[in-house]
Simulated scan of single mutants.
Amino acid sequence: MAKELELYIHIPFCVSKCRYCDFLSAPADEEERERYVESLCSRIRSCKEFAKDWHVSSIFVGGGTPSLLTGEQMGYIFRDIRETFRVDDMAEITVEMNPGTVSEEKLKAYREAGINRLSIGLQSANDQELKCLGRIHTYEMFVHSYQMARDCGFSNINVDLMSAIPFQTPESYEKTLRTVAELVPPPEHISAYSLIIEEGTPFYERYGEGKHAEELPAEEEEREMYVRTKEVLEEYGYIRYEISNYARSGFACRHNLGYWNRTQYLGIGTGASSLIGNKRWREGEEPEILTEKEEMEEFMFLGLRKMEGVSETDFRNVFQKEMQEVYGLILQKMKEEGLMEQAGDNWRLTERGIDISNYVMSEFLF
């Protein structure tokens, strides 16, 4: 019987590098992008033998900025995916895109290739905040791209938002939340992340190790933004199903849920990661063999990101051990501290536990 597999396809190109970005991406000319697509398609076709044992439930094309690819190039990629893998009829197929990088012709070609979900990197509805981040678009450009995607038939769209941006205030962030939630029609999904200052980025050079802290929202302001995200989006009918992700009923991202549930996935493209069985690797590197303890750790700290938490039955089915046998003392401690609760078969974070989730999850590391 074929096993479930998720595919991740990495496109490492962007127009220009954002100041906060530490992802594997860089600008490239048309010739370089064409060579990469040819190599990527060859790599996809080389999976023919491997693919016989699997059925693909979701495909996620990330980057970089995958929407820099032409409709024809995206068509080649999906032609070879479908000729190589058994893709479910109802598979969720997502492509990340940035405002200003698509046309009506390109979006129609993406639809023809079978893409049924878009993830648009907006980050903020405030043009000054976008400029500060090093984004190449304005809010007006986002609205144009968003409406064009709707006109081309996309009925499942995520919008990425960011809080704790330099010079951002709780008021400007809430205005972004409400502006996006009031789009007509509203997005089916909103991802709301807090800015992380990563080493090796221009933002780290400016803000790393506490430098220029006065330009960043104060800790209490960042906390207010975090709390208001849930409160505001719930007003508009969004359900929080994971720490940073909100969706209208029926539109939780299946690919992301698969990652948090440790569904096996194959990454294709420069730097893409894979998890098959107990082996994890990045494209071009030797696999790392995960121990049972490492797999159990991942089961817990990834699963606890979901609002529904982790299931004792699922733990038993995967590891042939009882969750209480392995983590009983920690679960009891978290419950006594008011950070976790039991709901039937599931253990999940409380509201207080969500607030300090990094601490809770660290408790499950051996």
Rank of each mutant, 00 (worst) to 15 (best):
C41P: 05
P202G: 01
D89M: 03
K175C: 02
Y139T: 06
S119H: 04
I59Q: 04
D89L: 02
I77M: 10
I136Y: 07
G100H: 09
R178G: 11
R228Q: 13
N346Q: 08
A51V: 11
I77W: 05
I190H: 10
E104C: 15
N158R: 14
M148W: 09
Y8A: 01
E322H: 11
P66A: 07
H10S: 04
F301H: 03
S103R: 03
Y238C: 02
Y241K: 08
L349M: 11
S274V: 00
R240W: 14
P12N: 02
L7S: 05
V326Y: 15
W54E: 09
E295C: 08
R79W: 07
T94K: 08
S39P: 06
L329F: 10
R223C: 02
N156C: 07
C253T: 10
P186T: 04
G303P: 12
P217T: 04
L331F: 06
L133P: 12
R33Q: 13
G344K: 11
G121S: 14
E325F: 02
T263G: 09
G309W: 15
C47F: 12
A252C: 10
C132I: 14
F85L: 05
G75C: 10
E34P: 14
R316G: 11
E325M: 09
M141N: 09
A51S: 15
D355Y: 08
K279Y: 00
G64H: 03
V310Q: 05
L216K: 00
R135F: 05
Y226T: 03
E222R: 08
E286R: 08
Y36N: 02
C18Q: 03
N256M: 06
I276W: 15
P185F: 14
I289H: 04
Q324K: 13
R352A: 11
F203L: 05
S16H: 13
Q342F: 00
L275M: 11
E235A: 01
K52M: 03
E234L: 02
N358R: 14
L69M: 02
I93W: 06
L339N: 03
F319G: 01
C21M: 04
C253I: 04
I157N: 09
W260H: 07
M296S: 07
